[in-house]
Nucleic acid binder design. Structure first.
Lengths: 102, 102
DNA sequence: TCGTCGCTGCAACCATGCTTGAAGTGTGCG
DNA sequence: CGCACACTTCAAGCATGGTTGCAGCGACGA
């Protein structure tokens, strides 16, 4: 590898990040997570969907690196990643990685 | 449409805005448009897709209110909307209006 | 005016992924 | 030790939207 910060690579990451929250359920989950850590059962109380469906979307969010998990006994706590919001903002064209001409 | 300032309405608009750019082609187009105005033929030179396909995605972007059109004789110039980037940033949870999720 | 070029709109096709159902893993408690 | 609970994973079905092809509209050049 020669280039470390490729524009194409950043665009791919941006697409993955944007695509992760460009969904009603995942957007709602992220919005909930901005208020603090929540376990899956807590999330279920706010998002009216099946448990396995929620788990699936949580996996997508986890795969996108937007959330982190912590097992607390029987429960699994989900929290927003430290750089999640920063990454989200950076994913928007004109913010970073793209030459923004006024 | 009656409701003007609702958290749900803002979330819906945010989803529509995010979903509009959460696509490889549309993301590329928006990134191109951040550099200035381009006609469809210009966009075609940078995005390797069919003309009508590009037109379709442009329509999606236009429907999302992210781009504006200007007819220049035979050509149609597409430009990023004034508040496009601002709307994009506002669409991210934790940025504005979304911190009061129950 | 006619022909060509640039762009847009519509209907159909196909791929992706969202949704559903059931089974599986790990943990705490009786 | 065995059961119940919380969550995850797997396989299958269905819906959404991205892609393709053709037809239509408007504008410039001859």
């Amino acid at each position: 590898m020669v280039a470390a910060t490729s524009v194409e690579a950043e665009a791919t990451d941006a697409l993955a990040t944007l695509g992760a929250i460009a969904d009603p359920i995942r957007f709602q989950v992220v919005r909930l997570l901005t208020n603090g850590t929540h376990c899956v059962c807590e999330l279920q109380a706010h998002v009216p969907i099946a448990a396995n469906l929620l788990s699936y979307h949580l996996k997508v969010l986890r795969d996108a690196g937007l959330v982190t998990t912590s097992r607390r006994g029987r429960w699994v706590d989900y929290a927003l990643a430290e750089d999640a919001l920063d990454r989200l903002h950076a994913a928007i064209p004109g913010a970073a990685g793209t030459s923004r001409a006024t």
